[in-house]
């Protein structure tokens, strides 16, 4: 990854560190008061008592509630190891991958509140419909268009070239929608495509194999594009893979004045 400039918001690494229980907080064996969202957006919280264990993720809590207390609880997960991003939820007010969030990192006293991601339609309980997120991703122009066919020789790409390094710094997004949920602008501007889509667009701007590279700046500045970003930095603060969509969006804004980066 390229070095990050000092004027961009750095990821909150405490999210990924193992944090031990603070004094005054619940200890293993204590009962946690877990509030879980039930129903759709017009639903409400329901309380469950779950035992706090030594090593326990928020996803473990949700699973225990479903298996022991509430068989009809809907939630989504797949890999359980921070690869797929399916288990993203709002935990004590912040969007997180629940499989990578140790309970001790987030409990306040013995309280834990688990809600669906913000800014997305709720299908049921903790499950959101990610269709609007991906529709905006498409609207932003995030689709790679190749310059060559499978019959051509692959384009040689120098992994040490500045453009490739810049693209690599933003490429690991798995579309978990945590940044989309964390972004206040997404909440108040329905047109805004969101941090993930613009971050993706910035990777295409630095990829010389992308056939529509010349259109990237115009796409970035369409209604609801990068000019709508207020640079709050919540996307970067909450990104579970420590990407910096803020930096990608700032770079797209700069391209309006200085043009796209040289990729040769």
């Amino acid at each position: 990854m390229t070095s990050k400039t000092s004027d961009t918001v750095q990821p909150d690494r405490s999210q990924h560190d193992h944090v031990h229980a603070q004094p005054g907080q619940a200890q293993p064996g204590d009962r946690l008061e877990v509030s879980i969202w039930r129903g759709k957006r017009d639903g409400g919280f329901k309380q469950y008592a779950v035992e706090l264990r030594e090593n326990q993720t928020v996803l473990d809590i949700v699973t225990e509630v479903q298996r022991q207390h509430e068989p009809s609880l809907a939630y989504r997960f797949a890999c359980r190891v921070g690869v797929c991003g399916s288990c993203a939820m709002t935990v004590n007010g912040a969007p997180r991958w629940t499989c990578r969030t140790h309970v001790n990192q987030v409990i306040a006293g013995n309280q834990l509140t688990i809600e669906p991601l913000r800014h997305l339609p709720v299908i049921k309980d903790l499950v959101c419909d990610l269709a609007p997120f991906f529709e905006k991703w498409q609207k932003a122009g995030g689709t790679f268009k190749p310059t060559k066919s499978r019959l051509d020789k692959p384009e040689p790409i120098d992994p040490q070239s500045p453009a490739r390094k810049t693209a690599n710094a933003a490429i690991e997004c798995i579309n978990c929608a945590v940044c989309y949920s964390a972004c206040d602008v997404v909440g108040w501007n329905n047109d805004y495509v969101g941090p993930a889509a613009l971050n993706r667009l910035w990777t295409l701007a630095n990829d010389k194999r992308h056939a529509d590279r010349e259109q990237v700046t115009d796409l970035a500045f369409q209604e609801g594009g990068c000019a709508s970003c207020h640079s709050h930095g919540n996307c970067t603060r909450h990104c579970p893979v420590e990407l910096s969509p803020s930096q990608s969006i700032a770079a797209l804004k700069k391209s309006a004045i200085f043009g796209l980066p040289d990729v040769e």
Partner: peptide, 12 residues
């Protein structure tokens, strides 16, 4: 006028 030109006009 497109979005990019409006952005440029405001910044400049």
């Amino acid at each position: 006028i497109n979005g990019r030109q409006l952005y440029l006009a405001q910044r400049l």
